[in-house]
Design a protein around this nucleic acid. Structure first.
Lengths: 188, 188
DNA sequence: GGCTAATTCGAGGGTGTCCTCGACTTGTGG
DNA sequence: CCACAAGTCGAGGACACCCTCGAATTAGCC
């Protein structure tokens, strides 16, 4: 597996392709034409395929790093003194991340991105999430039957709200999320 | 506008096409290939276009009638003695309708279906919805800042949850909806 | 039955995307 | 600076879908 170093021009093209993919997927979602990405990177379609034989490989090369932000959000949430605050901020932070990037939103909404790196990245994020949820439940501020899977469901739900409204009413998803979170909170 | 009666074979084909469209859109969503619909109807693609010059025309010929069920659901909700019960049943009924039909789910989730008939059908349904919401608010069982638009947002949200889970976990959307509704309810 | 207008048919041209492959170009180690 | 491996290029075949249009077929009226 000792991948020998890329030639200089190859490394440059690879970087240009990744940057272009982030942009184009971010604007158009994960179904964007690969040829658009190649053109944006000012590189031939053949070169794109030389680096990323499959759309999935390209996607897997992009999103794990973008998901790493979740770690920070999760860590901040755990550090928050108020367990409810921590939970709510974590959820809102996650959704805000989705709202920034159509490609990421797609990636989360559909089930794809099942690569090793992605699941391990998710794994860390999910580990945080698990603890954040537990802490809130222990403090009696989160309804006791809330589970990690409910967070996934929420993510799906938010993805469509975002798709429909983020471009025209950037705060509409926040209102929906607030209502939902209000329902999760218990007296404590 | 006095559309003269169709020839017998034409009427038959039109009916076959509509039935096929309901099936195919229901299975594959509104992006299904029109050629699939023609084939399912055992009719040539040219005939499909003769009857429905546009995908939109075909869609508009299908969904208004399917949306008519909303009237009944709304009427039943208004007839319910308990205002909260009425509201919750209405919402659940609406979402259950989405869950039954991928095409309908698509139609609701995206903004399309802006035909006259559709908006008038929606209009009636939305009129009911408005009253159902108002009644629940007047009874003090629904949070006071809930609005009709929030119902639309919910519909978007549910559409993705349904897409992702209805085939494998048919009740997952109900759990999510329950949490959401719990958050909307007030002491009364 | 025969005529005509209504209806149906499906081959085919257009478009957009995927992906391959052989010819060309270029970086780099010796 | 040269040779060769590594990398790039883009035309083009395959596919799926869109939609049109002239020829072939029929339903319904007399």
């Amino acid at each position: 597996m000792a991948t020998r170093p890329l030639r200089a021009d190859a490394a440059r093209n690879r970087a240009k392709l990744l940057a272009a993919a982030v942009d184009v997927f971010g604007e158009q979602g994960l179904d964007a034409a690969l040829e658009h990405i190649a053109r944006r990177a000012q590189v031939s379609i053949g070169t794109l395929y030389a680096h990323f034989p499959t759309r999935q490989v390209l996607i897997d090369s992009i999103f794990p790093s973008r998901l790493a932000v979740l770690d920070d959000i999760g860590a901040a949430a755990l550090a928050a003194p108020d367990p409810w605050r921590g939970f709510a901020d974590f959820v809102e932070g996650t959704v805000a991340l989705q709202a920034q990037d159509h490609g990421l939103n797609d990636a989360i909404a559909r089930r794809l991105v099942p690569s090793e790196e992605a699941t391990s990245a998710c794994g860390r994020g999910m580990g945080h999430a698990e603890r954040i949820i537990q802490r809130a439940k222990d403090a009696g501020v989160l309804r006791a039957d809330f589970e990690l899977a409910d967070l996934v469901t929420l993510t799906w739900a938010m993805s469509q709200v975002i798709r429909e409204s983020v471009d025209t009413e950037p705060d509409r998803w926040r209102r929906f999320l607030r209502f939902y979170l209000d329902g999760l909170r218990t007296a404590g």
